[in-house]
Write a protein that binds this DNA or RNA. Structure first.
Lengths: 339, 339
DNA sequence: CTGAAAGCGCTTACAG
DNA sequence: CTGAAAGCGCTTACAG
């Protein structure tokens, strides 16, 4: 049987004061007489009272909770972004996370409903539908502060403040680097077509290829996972293989390296592989993976600050997107091409 | 300016009914007249009403939220465990996550306070203090249902139901496998001394070494990270190196492989490396990492079921621990030893 | 410095 | 099938 938690009423009775005073001891101890405060605190300890947070939040109309939405938690990149977020929010807000990847019947809608009033702000680290759609409505209807981080905007999210790198420019620079190395036949492994991040990277790749007068049509679509990379590599490396493969993220690049190794292809001797993200394991891959680094922690920090802004100034529009610097990290998986 | 959300009162007025009826339309539509229901629903749409979840939860005394506590989100293993949890909880509960790694001043206590009444159950995927301590108090004082998963119990958590593998047995089997391969000098890279998981694994290693009449004292302590593994390897590989290194998790094993490669040591020719967890990147490491697999998704599924049990039967003790099967996964990072 | 009272938005017996 | 009323546990002006 669930023990009934003591309430403010019980504390008040035992201490011989009114509930107002107990409440004051909790929230404005300076406005309470010293002896009264002592007595009340003693009772609070005795009965092991802690205020019903649900009642408090309801009464106050706020929860001090910030929700961070990620597609799936198992990513080192996200972990850093979240670290950045918490470094600015911890203490002032409790940061909770929820996954948007579907796992059962109707998860997303369900969470969104709960989110409605139980959260003071949202940082979306995944702009993929369908999770985002309802959240936008909340933003409009209730003025729920929302900031997008890491992933650029989908159309429906375009009106919200956001923090990310210039994925188009980054991918096109990285492609130019590969071309400069002498690679003329380069394949690009992109992500799902509805993903705006990888779409930007894909376009950056194609633009750089076009600029160099090369054929930028060798684009393959995979699911951003290691296995996706393996499958893509098996497709690409059959027939007349390119001399370099540029992947829209590191997981796929690691998959490509693994598939290439299995086929006895030397990296970078026979095949150069370039990733994107500079996630945790890129540097210790064998060979170490060249990639494009995102300032993950910074993204988290800036996103959190934007959210704080949005919360403190609900009237301001503040919808500009903030672009942080990427960085090409050249390690050992890329080398000179045949050209 | 924050728009005032419409409440049940406004809907009632516009629809010309009482608030009881509006509430009924929301919660027991079958008990409402057909025409009334239509009218109310129309108004709800018009004013874009959605019930204040905070008020509902407060009133009902429950939130339908389950909290999963992880040390840090960036782990593929945890991702699978969470996938398992959600596969049983989604639909019935909203699953939210929070990190226990400290990032700012006083994060843990803060969250715990919020957690107090805003969550219906907790799955702890990290038994490390200090987060867990206060949660235990909640469990005792308020009968908050808690289940431990993945990591074995610390002393303070020993009374709670838990789901994990037999880390001692798994590590000792794995060590025996290494010994059977002809390795006599084996180093073990353990985790922080306060971690019960790695302590069990460490003891398993030592027991197996002792059983074989070998010296099991080559134990190094690192922080379970890739860098920790690199540093440990640099220590271990100086002087008279062992022929095999067994690491308490895959991250450190990957670090060891990377450090060994940098030193020009062939794996497994000159050094065998064995990991633990079979996380996402173990299979595609170069060479693919031998390791001990944990049934991560199963652990999540079972933990969630135990939690459901605990919620549905608050009176039952249900404190047994549930042991799931581990599996030795032999890939290419381990080979014959000199013996 | 302290207490009585109102009220946050909802749900749920209780009458009708 | 519907409404009036009580109440969930707290906070906060308002008096005193």
């Amino acid at each position: 049987m669930r023990l009934a938690s003591p309430t403010i009423v019980e504390v008040a009775q035992r201490a011989g004061v009114s509930i107002s005073t107990v409440s004051r001891c909790l929230n404005h101890p300076d406005k309470v007489g010293k002896k009264t405060l002592q007595r009340v605190r003693k009772v609070i300890d005795e009965v092991n009272f802690s205020p019903n947070a649900l009642a408090q939040s309801f009464r106050r109309g706020k929860t001090n909770i910030i929700l961070v939405v990620v597609h799936e938690i198992g990513s080192g990149l996200l972990s850093e972004v979240v670290g950045g977020i918490r470094s600015v929010l911890d203490g002032r807000y409790a940061v909770i996370l929820t996954e948007s990847r579907p796992d059962a019947a109707q998860p997303a809608n369900f969470i969104e409903m709960l989110v409605a009033k139980q959260v003071e702000g949202v940082i979306l680290l995944c702009s993929v539908p369908p999770f985002s759609r309802k959240i936008i409505e909340l933003n409009k209807a209730r003025n729920l502060p929302i900031v997008i981080g890491l992933e650029p905007l989908s159309d429906e999210l375009r009106k919200l403040p956001s923090v990310h790198i210039d994925n188009f420019a980054a991918a096109s620079e990285a492609t130019a680097y590969l071309i400069g190395l002498g690679h003329h036949r380069i394949a690009f492994v992109s992500g799902p077509r509805q993903s705006y991040v990888t779409l930007d990277r894909e376009r950056g790749f194609m633009a750089a290829m076009a600029d160099a007068g090369l054929d930028g049509s060798h684009v393959h679509y995979a699911d951003l996972s290691v296995n996706g990379g393996i499958n893509a590599a098996n497709d690409i490396l059959t027939g007349a293989p390119p001399s370099a493969i540029f992947c829209a993220n590191d997981d796929m690049a690691l998959g490509v390296m693994s598939a290439a190794a299995r086929r006895g292809l030397a990296i970078p001797g026979a095949l150069s592989v370039l990733g994107f993200d500079d996630m945790r394991y890129a540097a210790i891959a064998n060979p170490p993976l060249s990639t494009v680094a995102q300032p993950a922690r910074e993204i988290g920090i800036h996103a959190a600050r934007r959210l704080l802004d949005a919360i403190d100034n609900p009237d301001e529009p503040g919808r500009q997107t903030e672009i942080l610097q990427h960085r090409l990290v050249i390690r050992s998986s890329t080398g000179r091409g045949p050209g």
